[in-house]
């Protein structure tokens, strides 16, 4: 005879489903989610969409400069952040870090960096060094360190420790062990993370200007504030095209490397 179906773990199920439902209702209420409001505002929405179409192509030439600035910011952020991420990642890799306190401090430092979104860094640096692309580059530097160091330290933790230990045994010091034994093994991953960070940075640098940190976002912010939605659409289209092109390039490089 077939055994009775074991009864599921009801307290767990009720707990999980109840939590999900409660969280959703509470959140929906909290943010004023309402289908009726959405329906009512659709009329206004269509008007906005009408206003934002067709894009103002005449505005395009004025975008070239800021668009380039956006790319510059992303390049600087990726290069500086990419270099700084290496020591951060090495010290946070369990198998390479010189001692436990260093590991602990560095790991938490890394996690804290990761908690703050890119625009927060941009706001902070814009306040500290003044509005403009320098603030954006600094913000993306920090953001890049946060992105790459985490991924890279995980790759470093999974390398084969034979070579580094052999270098140690041959009388090499810690730095030589890292430089010749550990880093080359995860080089390929590092490059692919750096390219990934570059893609993220291009995306991020587009919006940095919203808080005054340079790039095309600054124009976007002015046009948005003035409700020039044909221009907003133009900017967003330009941004999309640029982002897609750069991602395509980056992906093809990544493919060739792996």
């Amino acid at each position: 005879m077939i055994p009775a179906r074991p009864s599921p773990n009801w307290p767990l199920w009720i707990g999980v489903v109840g939590f999900l439902a409660a969280m959703t209702v509470w959140s929906a209420y909290g943010i004023g989610f309402s289908a009726s409001e959405l329906a009512c505002n659709i009329a206004g929405g269509t008007r906005l969409l009408e206003e934002s179409w067709p894009p103002d192509f005449g505005f395009l030439p004025r975008l070239a400069g800021p668009m380039m600035e956006t790319v510059y910011i992303a390049i600087i952020g990726t290069v500086v952040g990419g270099i700084l991420a290496i020591p951060v990642a090495v010290l946070a890799a369990r198998n390479l870090t010189p001692n436990r306190p260093t590991w602990f401090v560095d790991r938490n430092f890394m996690n804290i960096l990761r908690t703050l979104p890119d625009l927060f860094w941009a706001m902070l640096f814009a306040t500290a060094v003044g509005f403009g692309p320098v603030a954006g580059a600094l913000a993306l530097t920090v953001f890049t360190v946060a992105v790459i160091s985490k991924l890279y330290s995980e790759s470093l933790e999974s390398i084969d420790m034979g070579l580094p230990e052999a270098i140690r045994a041959a009388g090499g010091n810690w730095l030589q062990m890292i430089q010749f034994g550990a880093l080359p093994q995860a080089m390929q991953q590092y490059v692919s993370y750096a390219l990934y960070a570059f893609e993220l940075n291009i995306r991020a640098s587009v919006v940095l200007g919203l808080v005054g940190a340079g790039g095309i976002g600054m124009i976007l912010e002015t046009q948005r504030a003035n409700f020039e939605y044909e221009r907003v659409t133009m900017i967003i289209l330009a941004v999309l095209v640029a982002v897609l092109i750069i991602e395509e390039i980056s992906e093809s490089i990544r493919k060739r490397l792996t």
Binding site: I31, F33, E37, G44, A204, V207, V239, L240
Partner: peptide
């Protein structure tokens, strides 16, 4: 999915804010 990914949230929010009004709903 590629099109949806190309839009950073914040650019979408720029459109949703005038459609559903300032506030958290537009953000969601």
């Amino acid at each position: 999915s590629a099109t949806a990914r190309a839009f950073p949230e914040i650019l979408l929010a720029i459109y949703f804010v005038p459609i559903v009004g300032l506030g958290a709903f537009a953000g969601a």
